[in-house]
Design a protein around this nucleic acid. Sequence first.
DNA 1: CGATCAGTTGAGAATGGTCAAATTCGGTGG
DNA 2: CCACCGAATTTGACCATTCTCAACTGATCG
Lengths: 243, 243
Amino acid sequence: MLMTQGPLTRKLSAFVALSGDDLETLARFHRRRRSFQAGHQMIHEGGKNQSAFILAEGWACSYKLLPDGERQIVDFQIPGDFLGLRSILFRTSDHSIEAVTRIEASEVLASDILDGFSRAPRLASAVLWAASRDEAMVVEHLVNLGRRSAETRMAHFLLELGARLKLVGIGGLSGFDCPLTQYHLADALGLSAVHVNRVLRHLREEGLVTFQKGRVSFDNLAGLTELAGFDPDYLDQDGPLLR
Amino acid sequence: MLMTQGPLTRKLSAFVALSGDDLETLARFHRRRRSFQAGHQMIHEGGKNQSAFILAEGWACSYKLLPDGERQIVDFQIPGDFLGLRSILFRTSDHSIEAVTRIEASEVLASDILDGFSRAPRLASAVLWAASRDEAMVVEHLVNLGRRSAETRMAHFLLELGARLKLVGIGGLSGFDCPLTQYHLADALGLSAVHVNRVLRHLREEGLVTFQKGRVSFDNLAGLTELAGFDPDYLDQDGPLLR
DNA sequence: CGATCAGTTGAGAATGGTCAAATTCGGTGG
DNA sequence: CCACCGAATTTGACCATTCTCAACTGATCG
């Protein structure tokens, strides 16, 4: 039994108590190690027979492009995240994913997943749970775009990212290293890059957060949390529900 | 074996070929028939030990409330939809669901689902697929809010709703009956009710769609589809992927 | 016949977008 | 070490989309 299971296994174990068989099947997902340059497009919207990946190192983002060339980033993926699940469950992928930084990941083929589910059925429940957790995050982004001002939207986004990174042991309460550009933020938050810059300046001048030179610093975490109305419940899970 | 399986079974069968055992387990989900008044809150954000429902008749909507009292509607549910899955997968629900019209639905307890998954493992894969399809819809709404103008947003929304209703046999290419108020549209599209009204008027005056007296009429379907950049691929699935 | 709720319209304000031009910063080659 | 390049960031001025507030209409219901 491998003791060096990655963060994905840890995450899934938070929902179902995985058996030895389950763990072994899960370990098979890690056979094909790949690395990608920053900017490489790992999954193509409209493409068929694509793979999924388990991210070990680096950041990625999933997005959709509009006819007029604009793009909307749906989410960022950080180490431990499963990415591109929908691109194997559906015949043609409904979104694209690109590497934000240099990436190390395990490639998971559609057959790995589907065979894995018949070999270790509890795995399907576990992956369903993980996918639902991702969906909860997308829903929170939706609320962000629909009903929050640019400023609270940015605050909420940075807090969520900080909380997610802390859960996988990267960064802490004081802040985190962040490879994103202001264009990434703009495409994720539905703003223009110019306005992103203004919002960041304002938050900095208010003494709430500083995002400069690839580092996000929470200067006043309580104030920022208050401003954003941030409640991390949708990220956190306690013990396994399924035994 | 029941031949009168509902639209949910049909939907799941589009992904996995369900065995007799699977179908029987699925049929158990339909034991507890319930009905609700319009406006009844079926699932409470923050509530614990909630049920899920399979919608047989009527419309519902899932939403989140913000600290300032605003709300963001995440999606509408129509007959055949599974609703509240995340409220049983998570200990505490991250969203609320309320009946838009009078509703007929089957109540599904957390234990039904979890026992069902161990009894009929392929069901877990099927539900994972259905949940992913719902997530694809939420993602499309996210793009809608982030990167489309009020007008194309409305156009896209009405086209998606029309396409979904057509898939379950309600309404056709010419339009559909729609119980939503302009306040519902506002909360779903991240607009003010006043602006919703203006946008609807403009679309009507352009001869694209008319939404009046509970009926949406596509006056110029091609033009509306063009305006919205609507591509229904993310809704449609062909044959079963898993045999 | 009030009362209430959905829809409609106008006027003015605000949030955020666009365009254009600096400025800074991290390389990279000399 | 320095000059230079391109990308990312920063700022200003002006513009547009959308919001807010407020009033009015019309339908429905007890």
